[in-house]
Nucleic acid binder design. Structure first.
Length: 930
RNA sequence: GCUCGGAUGGUGGAACUGGUAGACACGCAGGACUUAAAAUCCUGUUCGCCCUAAAGCGAGUGCGGGUUCGAUUCCCGCUCCGAGUACCA
């Protein structure tokens, strides 16, 4: 039989499902290995050919590790709460659960079609109450926790209450809201229950607070910073504005430093780590107070306290709380006008317009903390209310923005270092040279100056060293329906957790998925919610990242384990520990991957998990872009489109307009004219101007999307070439981490390879036939070359070069007409991770027990077969290639040198001079220097 | 603007710590089989020169320098492309 890929693949996929071949056990003597994919959101469009790239890579790795004797956890699930299903529900009234279920079934079908070795018994769905019960549980843990800076970890809120009871807030080192006021143990005891709860809320790791949030009116919800891109929502692209609202937040800032430090201990791509570092945005500097009068002062944050003597004015953000009280009567109109102006600017304008310098003078002055000189106070929108203290000391000689501002408003520019130059043209932020015009630090360099100054400021009570982070606490509530309900109810306006025994707090049914007329979230419509009427429930739901911030632990719980009342059994967690290899896109750098690290650290602090970091090694697979094809319609003289299309190469001779054409009717840029005519009635009688008898289409690389007719479904490829070809071809396309456009130009080559491989085991009449003969040395050499190569490639995630090596190996064996069992059996195992179906079939034909290839022993590389006695290789003289020498590897270096000296041909090139130097590389002589 | 990647034939891409650049595949050209086509197989394919052939010569990894016996690989400067980020004090 010829290579009947569809029949083989379907049969094995069924076999694996029926036999639960990839079901993994938590009790094993084998070493563990955890290979994880970022689980998908099941969208209505299904998978396109770009989605499985990472899954294929992880599947190859998982299968390889299994063959290598590891107990491999390789699960899959769905991040099934999310906006699209809800938007669809709003439009059609269909419950998001139904939409989600349908989409999941479609995803599953597509995934199964590609022969992945997932343990589906461990599947998770974030929208499943049995799952989100534990998401809610983690929320409750966070609510019941505070961050102790002394022990540098999260602790139970009961510990904090004990501290308050014994010593009040005295000596407490904790992460909290800014507005905490000190109190004694007696004060605490005198507080009412309500007051106590209000105080505790300022310490809880998830808390309710009025804060400025990103409000997206079109989506009717708030968004986290990472869900906003350039002033628009990431999902849907709707405008986002700033709004003050009472909101749930997560105190991720408590973990800022640990999140930063942890990056050094994990094997992640450097760009990704860099993104997280920037997002956390640690800056080391100082807080400095500029006093206004005896009772009031302006506090600024600066990373360059050494430039303080160059500070010639202060600038406040227009929203700064002191602006109103600082504005003098005569400056009032100007200030008000300016604030009015900045309010009108949207967030977008403000970002786009970074060149215009604008501001207004308040009329007030503050005193320089060291020199006591009066310094004018201005406001300007280049100072952000949300960062630092919302106020800066402006040093025009050292900071370009301050310099521009000083120029525009005629404020003095004072040089502070003898190394500064060109101050009339621009600011010079150099740290070189020695300070001038700086009373305390004149003559000193950067390093000493900073510590001298901070010491002095501390002495004066006017400043202190301070580390500032750009990272904000994460807004946690969403005014949406399709998410996890927050397990909280309110009493007297204060939040309380519902009882653990009431979990999961199941998402109630609603009549519509829209906010209520009074603007409350959709959950306000839920009339039959349990305890509704008794309890005033929190009406917002959790954000998309909640369910994905711990899901890898749920996979550790086997199906049986999930009956237990734990998120994952302790025993399972201590066996699997962490994810050894995580594969997914880099777009989650500042979202999912940061939140997951945060929750993981928190769970570690409370002793629920073992490791400080959840994902030891991470690989970003590149995006597969779409490759759009175009036809060119000729524009007639009347300016309207004709029904004549001109081939790409000739289009410059006409006026044309380009039209996307479905990539599925184009092959090697040649349009299938018949299919094109049939595709739409208006094209039925289209005419074509051809080149060389063909219609050549134009090409462009774009994102894969339905509207561009460039979506290629994996199902079509599987139907045509088989899953094994698809898997190998996606790997063959290029390095895993690189983004590349999809094209099928080379897929035939991979398909041919698999068929050749199949033919090795069959005679000319396609009857299975292998020889029991002892293989030759050459045959062993071909085999062991591939064993070594594939091992090396897989270990460094260079799957593309492996595919090439397989092709070389099979070509060599074909040339040798090798059909020896001893060679082929090992080759099957080495290829199995890449092409699991065909290898499983051949494994069975070879007489092995069916379905057991995944537990076969991986062949051991034997270097003996690769040693060659005679090498012929080029030898250079002074770096120029001259001639080939035959030299035995077994000779010593001295003997080789002797041969060179005696070689007449080589001597000619050496002009009979004796070589100065003979260069050996790995025992080979490569160059002779005269 | 800042940070991080990248640039190799007609195309996708190999070359692991500096050691025969262009593996492998696609495409293209020629050939075999065939009445013909498809499929399959074989040969050639970086560019230029030379050529009856065997062979030979020269250039060549975005551009310009440098280190080295030797550079796609390391260093300096530049150009272009991609990603992230953006008034962060």
């Amino acid at each position: 039989m010829d290579y009947q890929f569809r029949e083989i693949e379907k049969r094995w996929q069924k076999f694996w499902a029926d036999n639960q071949t990839f079901k993994v056990d938590n009790n094993s003597e084998k070493p563990k290995y955890y290979v994880l994919d970022m689980f998908p959101y099941p969208s209505g469009a299904g998978l396109h050919v770009g989605h499985p790239l990472g899954y294929i890579a992880s599947d190859i790795f998982a299968r390889y590790k299994r063959l290598k004797g590891f107990n491999v956890l390789h699960p899959m699930g769905y991040d099934s709460f999310g906006l699209p299903a809800e938007q669809y529900a709003i439009q059609t009234g269909q419950h998001p659960a139904i939409t989600t279920e349908t989409n999941i079934n479609r995803y599953r079908e597509q995934l199964d079609n590609m022969g992945f070795s997932f343990d589906w018994s461990r599947e998770v769905r974030t929208s499943d109450p049995g799952y989100y019960k534990w998401t809610q549980w983690i929320f409750m843990l966070l609510f019941n926790a505070w961050y102790n800076l002394e022990t540098d970890k999260a602790e139970s809120i009961d510990e904090l209450i004990k501290k308050f009871e014994t010593s009040g807030s005295n000596g407490l080192k904790a992460v909290s809201d800014d507005d905490v006021t000190p109190f004694s143990a007696e004060d605490w005891k005198r507080k009412s229950d309500r007051e106590k709860q209000t105080e505790l809320l300022k310490y809880r790791l998830t808390y309710l607070r009025e804060s400025t949030v990103n409000w997206c009116a079109a989506l009717g919800t708030v968004l986290a910073n990472d869900e906003v891109k350039d002033g628009f929502s990431e999902r849907g692209g709707y405008p986002v504005e700033q709004k003050k609202m009472m909101q749930w937040s997560m105190r991720i800032t408590a973990y800022a430093d640990r999140l930063l430090r942890g990056l050094d201990s994990i094997d992640w791509p450097e760009p990704l780590k860099e993104m997280q570092r920037n997002w956390i945005g640690k800056s080391v500097g100082a807080l400095v107070r500029f006093s206004i009068d005896k009772n009031a002062f302006i506090e600024v944050f600066t990373t360059r306290v050494d430039t303080i003597f160059g500070a010639t004015f202060l600038v406040l953000a227009p929203e700064h709380e002191l602006v109103a009280s600082l504005t003098t009567a005569e400056q009032k109109p100007e200030i008000e006008k300016y604030i009015e102006q900045t309010k009108k600017k949207t967030e977008l304008d403000r970002m786009a317009d970074t060149k215009t310098v604008s501001g207004a003078f308040t009329g007030s002055y503050a005193l320089h903390p060291v020199t006591s000189e009066p310094i004018p106070i201005w406001i300007a929108d280049y100072v952000l209310a949300g960062y630092g203290t919302g106020a800066v000391m402006a040093v025009p000689s050292g900071d370009q923005r301050d310099w521009l501002f000083a120029r525009k408003f005629n404020l003095p520019i004072v040089a502070i270092s003898d190394a500064q130059s060109d101050l009339d043209k621009q600011a010079d932020p150099t740290k070189e040279g020695n300070y001038i015009n700086s009373p305390l630090i004149n003559g000193l360099g950067y390093k000493e100056a900073t510590s001298v100054l901070i010491a002095r400021l501390e002495e004066l009570g006017a400043g202190k060293a301070r580390i500032n982070y750009r990272l904000r606490d994460a807004i946690f509530g969403r005014q949406r329906y399709w998410g996890e309900p927050v397990p909280v109810y309110f009493k007297d306006g204060l939040p309380y957790l519902i009882e653990f025994s009431e979990l999961p707090l199941v998402l109630p049914e609603v009549d519509k998925y829209l906010p209520t007329e009074s603007g409350e979230p959709p959950l306000a419509r839920a009339e039959n919610w349990k305890y509704r009427g008794e309890l005033e429930y929190e009406l917002s739901t959790m954000p998309g990242w909640a369910g994905s911030s711990w899901y890898w632990y749920r996979y550790m719980a086997s199906k049986e384990d999930r009956e237990q009342e734990v998120f994952a059994p302790e025993k399972a967690i201590s066996y699997w520990k962490d994810v050894d290899l995580y594969i997914g896109g880099s777009e989650h750098a500042t979202g999912h991957l940061l939140y997951s690290r945060f929750w993981n650290k928190f769970l570690k602090d409370l002793g629920y998990v073992m490791e400080e970091e959840p994902f030891k090694k991470l690989i970003n697979q590149g995006m597969i872009q779409g490759r759009s094809n175009f036809v060119y319609r000729i524009i007639g003289e009347d300016g309207r489109g004709t029904n004549t299309f001109v081939s790409y190469g000739l289009k410059s001779e006409y006026t044309t307009t380009s039209l996307h054409v479905d990539v599925n009717i184009v092959e090697h840029e040649i349009l299938d004219i018949e299919k094109f005519k049939a595709s739409r009635s208006e094209f039925a009688d289209a005419e074509f101007i051809l080149e060389n008898g063909k219609y050549i289409c134009g090409v462009e690389v774009e994102k894969m999307s339905k509207s561009k007719f460039n979506v290629v479904s994996p199902d079509d490829i599987v139907e045509r070439y088989g899953a094994d070809t698809l898997r190998m071809y996606e790997m063959f396309l290029g390095p895993l981490e690189q983004s590349k456009p999809w094209n099928t130009n080379g897929i035939e080559g991979v398909f041919k390879f698999l068929r050749k491989f199949w033919k090795l085991f069959h005679d000319d009449d396609f009857n299975f036939l292998v020889s029991e003969e002892e293989p030759s040395k050459g045959e062993y050499k071909a085999l062991h070359k591939i064993i070594r190569k594939v091992e090396e490639d897989i270990e460094r995630f260079s799957f593309n070069t492996s595919v090439s090596s397989f092709m070389i190996c099979v070509n060599e064996l074909t040339d040798l007409k090798c059909n020896k069992r001893k060679i082929l059996q090992d080759l099957v195992i080495v290829l199995a991770p890449y092409a699991p179906h065909i290898t499983e079939e051949l494994w069975t034909l070879l007489g092995n027990e069916t379905g057991e290839i995944s537990t076969a022993p991986y062949p051991v590389f034997n270097p003996e077969y690769l040693v060659e006695n005679e090498f012929s290789y080029p030898v250079s003289v002074n770096g120029k290639t001259r001639m080939n020498l035959n030299i035995s590897l077994s000779l010593s270096q001295a003997e080789v040198e002797q041969i060179i000296l005696e070689n007449e041909d080589l001597q000619k090139y050496l002009d009979n001079k004796s070589p100065k130097k003979i260069i050996f590389v790995k025992g080979k002589i490569v160059n002779v220097v005269v």
